[in-house]
Design a protein around this nucleic acid. Structure first.
Lengths: 160, 160
DNA sequence: CGAACACTAGGCAGATTGTCCACTCATTCA
DNA sequence: TGAATGAGTGGACAATCTGCCTAGTGTTCG
């Protein structure tokens, strides 16, 4: 299994805090040679630990102030799920999971307003194979998505 | 409300596809002057549309192969929620939302294995104020988190 | 009309990148 | 033990990019 050491962890934390940092500046801050940082970064990406440096876009800043989790029951089919494909065509659907429990799929959607959410849900319900949906609105997000604590935790768990 | 035009959209899409691109290269690909790209980027960040360029870390690559959504009922308190604060101290808790519906909080957690998930849930249950939890495991994620379709959609909706 | 704004096109010095190299140190293993 | 391997260091190189500035051109709008 892939693991990371303390230097990797510090590097990721540093880049998370100040993503625009160059390799050279990172090496200075971490107190290691530039080549080392470069090699570490390359390896982290090769191993898939870091999947990219994509710009983080805030849906809220674009006017999508409503976030909701929509779980749904679908007509089960064998093999690859065509329902997920169709859901993927709805821009407001940001994420889709197949899940355990009473429902089959759980997706995260955003909308401009509550009224707009209705429109989005209607689109979801319209998707062929969707039998029933259940929506939960996220009122607030006291802990926004983050991975840093996990990254900081890994080298500790792996032993020094 | 903040909005973006087609050039912003293309810029974000380009950077999402190839995040390591520099401003100069972006300007070439988009067919505009470097200063324009620079100004657009600055504005997008000022307005909070782009919140950062943090490295995207894959929990799975670190050995956290299990993702679950844990909803919970909590002892309601007025004002700022101390339960969320305590949940935030658990590294495996990646995200916390307050929600509508039967439950009060919904959080996304990861764990190394199903057995490990039990440990994480135990930690959650141990949090003062948490009365009851309900876990749903994400078996598969046919649509991983994405914002691109939304970004591509905005300029269209805003009119040309 | 004039002001404000966004964009283009260019120039400049300084910093950074990608890519080499040679050397050291620790670990692994025949 | 001794050789091989992998990781890190420190330094060097040309090519490139960055931040910053100037000047000119359209557009929009009060």
């Amino acid at each position: 299994m892939t693991t990371i050491d303390e230097l990797d962890s510090r590097l990721i934390a540093l880049l998370t805090a100040e993503p625009r940092l160059g390799v050279l500046e990172c090496s200075r801050r971490l107190g290691v040679a530039r080549g080392t940082v470069q090699a570490r970064l390359d390896r982290l990406m090769e191993r898939g630990v870091i999947t990219g440096f994509g710009p983080d876009v805030s849906p809220a800043a674009l006017g999508y102030h409503v976030t909701a989790f929509v779980s749904m029951e679908i007509r089960q089919v064998a093999g690859h799920d065509p329902v997920a494909d169709r859901l993927a065509r709805i821009p407001e659907v940001l994420e889709v999971h197949t899940i355990t429990g009473d429902s089959d799929l759980l997706c995260r959607v955003v909308a401009r307003t509550n009224a707009d959410l209705q429109r989005v849900i209607d689109r979801i319900v319209d998707v062929q194979g969707v039998l029933r949906t259940n929506s939960i609105i996220a009122l607030d997000t006291p802990v926004p998505y983050r991975v840093l604590p996990l990254v900081a935790d890994v080298p500790r768990r792996e032993g020094r």
